[in-house]
Amino acid sequence: MIQLSTKPFPLPRPARRLEIGSSDLHLWRISADDGLPYVDRLHKSLSEAEQLRASKFFRDEHAQQFVIYHAGLRDILARYLGVAPIEITYQASSFGKPNVISGQAGQLKFNLTHSSQLAVVAVAVDAEVGVDIEEVRKIRSFASMIDRCLSDAERKDICVHQEADRHRQFLRFWTHKEAYLKTIGVGLQAPLDRVTVDLQAPDSRKVVNHFHVFPKEPTVRLMELAPCEGFVGAVGSTHDESPEIKTFGWVSGRCG
């Protein structure tokens, strides 16, 4: 289980470029509460399209979270690329997974997830990454969600758990599946009940059943994340060996 750092990242930007090797997996934690005092400043580091999107949210709280997480993502990627956060441009793959296009960014891979007050960014080079976190909560239409999203083996596993733990257990499966699908870049267009995850298996064998459209290679490693109290999560990657994991706490006050 990977515990995420809440310790602020010590390097002020732009002291020097942050190094990342092909066997590394970096995980950044972004807290919306920590970013809130800086939200106006962070807003300025977003692209016009992101600013427009931020202006459309029904709830101010969601707009603020959007600004903090996307400004945080830009600032984090900028540290690796040695460019200003605003200079970063994204391009979506055919299934909507974004990649960075600017300068030497080709090999830098990243993925963002957020739930409520928390976001996590996974970063790697030469390996695909996918990450998902969820705040533990009661799932609406739970019986129908279990039917739609879990395989037979996973449904049996849920039933073994005490009633009170079932929603949490469901979200553990959910985050592992979503991390897997985000790693291979297809997102939730996939039929979730056709993929089986074994939470007890070693990282490289957690995905035990692929729907036939998914490639068997490269192997996706799935690692469970403990983002913080009250959240569950998982991160997937296509590293050949178990990646060297480093975790960082992103501090918005130091940005810009």
Binding site: K56, F57, F58, R59, S144, M145, R148, L171, L188, L192
Partner: peptide, 23 residues
């Protein structure tokens, strides 16, 4: 709730969106 609003603007998480589609 404005009918011309996008689903995106309500910041539904993916589990909620899948749940709504199911219902």
């Amino acid at each position: 709730i404005d009918p011309s609003a996008t689903f995106d603007s309500f910041a539904l998480d993916s589990a909620t969106a899948i749940g709504m589609t199911g219902d």
